[in-house]
Design a protein around this nucleic acid. Structure first.
Lengths: 224, 224
DNA sequence: GGAATAGTGTCTATCAGACATTATGGA
DNA sequence: TCCATAATGTCTGATAGACACTATTCC
C-alpha cells in the first residue's frame, strides 16, 4: 500500500460586494512561481489542525479578516499532480462570504472586482478555476439559502439586500416582487423595528438576518 | 512556512437502489484499527495521480466497479487530526451513483442498505458522517439534476424512475403528477420508441437519459 | 372479461412576473 | 412643494398538488 505524503494547503475564495461590484480577496505574488500574478490567499495546514480551523487561521493571518460574521464553508479540493510546479500539493478550497470590510493593511492583499480577475488577469496556479467555482457556488447559494445577508452589514434594508442579489447575479430584479418574496420567506428577515434614511427618500425598515438555514420557497434566478 | 506532509486518501460513497432499498458499497475491515467494522472503500492517492483518476482507480480496485455509467463527483474533504489513529490522513470523499450492478466478487465488499449502516452499524473512522453527507447530497441532487437516471439501467420506464425517487427520498409520490413533471422537463428523458411489459400490465414506454445537466423546473421534495 | 399497470385529463389554490399607486421623510 | 425612495396592491398566466378516468397488455 503506497503511503505517499503530499503537502496540503487551504486556499480561500473570499467574496464581498463593494462599490457595486462582486469582489474577491487576492494576494499579490512577488516571488516565483507565478511572480507578478494574483493568487488566492492560503497556506499549508498544520499537523494538529482541523481544516476549518486552518481556514479560519489563514483568514486572519493572510487576509487580516477575523470578523465572526464571515460565512465560511468548504468549496472543493483540487489536486492534479502538476498544479504547483514545485511539489505535489493538494489544496482544500474554502469559500468565504463577507460584508464590505477593510481587508489586511498589507499592500499585498486587496479586494479586486471578480470580472477583471476571471477574464484577463494574470492568476497563479489553478486559482482562476477555484475562483470561478467559488463564484458559481455563491450565485447558486443565493437561490436556496439566506446567505445573501452575509454580504450585508448586521442591519440592512430590503433594497440593500436586493442590490446584493442584483450584483452577484448580474441581473436587475423587480423591487416589488423582491420585497414580497424576501419578507414572505420565513426565517429570512427579522425586523429590528427601526428605520434608516441612509439611502434618501422614505425611511426604510431595517432587518437582521433570521435563523433559517434554507429558503422556502427559493429565490429563483431569472430566465435561465 | 511549515510544509507538513500528510497522507491523502480517496474514500468512496457509492450508492445504488437495489431490492427497494437505498444501499451503499461497504468494505469489511478485518484488521485494526476498527477491525470487525464496515468502512467505505478507499485508499491512498498515488503521487502522479489526479484526484478523479484516483477515485476511478479505487472504484475498480476496491469495489470491482468499472462501469462507465457510474456518476462520480467530489463530495467533500475530511481532515480533522485524529480521524485515523495511526497518522494524519486527509481524505477526499467522492460520491458515486450507480445502477444495480454486481459489486466485487470479494466477500469483503458488499452492498448494504444505508438505514442499517447509518443508525446502528459499527462504522470505521468518520465514515458514518461521510456516508450521511453523501446520502444527503444524493437526495438534494435528485431535486435539481437528472441524476436519478444514474440509478436506473440504460433504458427505463417512468415508473422505475419514480420508484428511485420514492426510495431515495423515502416518500410516496403521485404517479400522475410525477409523470407530467418528468416528461415535461426538457432534456431529462429521451423516448426510445420501444416499450416493455416487465412490470406487467399495459406496456410502458422506455426512455433513455437526456443530456440536460440540470432540471428546470426542479422536482421538489414534498412537505419540508 | 378481469387484473394489473400505463398514460391523460381536470380542477383549484398558490405563486411568479408584470405593472400602478400610495406613503414618508428631507431639501 | 417637490423629490427620492419605500412599501403595498392588483392582475394574469403558469404550475403544483389532489383526484378520476381511459388505454393496453396478459391471463
Amino acid at each position: 500500500m503506497t503511503d505517499a505524503r503530499v503537502a496540503v494547503t487551504v486556499d480561500l475564495v473570499v467574496l464581498t460586494v463593494r462599490e457595486q461590484r462582486l469582489s474577491a480577496l487576492v494576494w499579490w505574488r512577488d516571488r516565483s512561481p507565478y511572480a507578478e500574478s494574483w493568487s488566492l490567499p492560503g497556506g499549508f495546514i498544520q499537523l494538529d489542525e482541523d481544516l476549518p480551523v486552518a481556514a479560519q487561521r489563514l483568514m486572519a493571518e493572510r487576509a487580516g479578516l477575523t470578523d465572526v460574521r464571515i460565512h465560511l464553508e468548504q468549496l472543493a479540493t483540487y489536486g492534479y499532480p502538476d498544479r504547483d510546479p514545485r511539489q505535489r500539493v493538494v489544496s482544500v478550497a474554502y469559500l468565504g462570504l463577507a460584508p464590505d470590510l477593510p481587508a489586511s493593511t498589507r499592500a499585498q492583499v486587496m479586494w479586486r472586482p471578480v470580472d477583471g480577475l476571471t477574464v484577463k488577469g494574470r492568476i497563479a496556479f489553478d486559482h482562476r478555476r477555484i475562483l470561478l467555482d467559488g463564484i458559481e457556488r455563491a450565485r447558486a447559494k443565493l437561490e436556496y439559502s439566506p446567505l445573501a445577508a452575509a454580504f450585508c452589514p448586521p442591519e440592512f434594508t430590503v433594497a440593500e439586500l436586493r442590490r446584493v442579489y442584483e450584483i452577484v447575479w448580474g441581473t436587475p430584479l423587480d423591487p416589488r416582487n423582491f420585497h414580497r418574496k424576501v419578507t414572505g420567506a420565513r426565517g429570512f428577515l427579522v425586523p429590528t423595528g427601526t428605520t434608516t434614511t441612509r439611502d434618501g427618500g422614505r425611511p426604510a425598515r431595517l432587518y437582521r438576518r433570521g435563523d433559517a438555514e434554507s429558503l422556502h420557497p427559493p429565490m429563483m434566478r431569472p430566465t435561465w
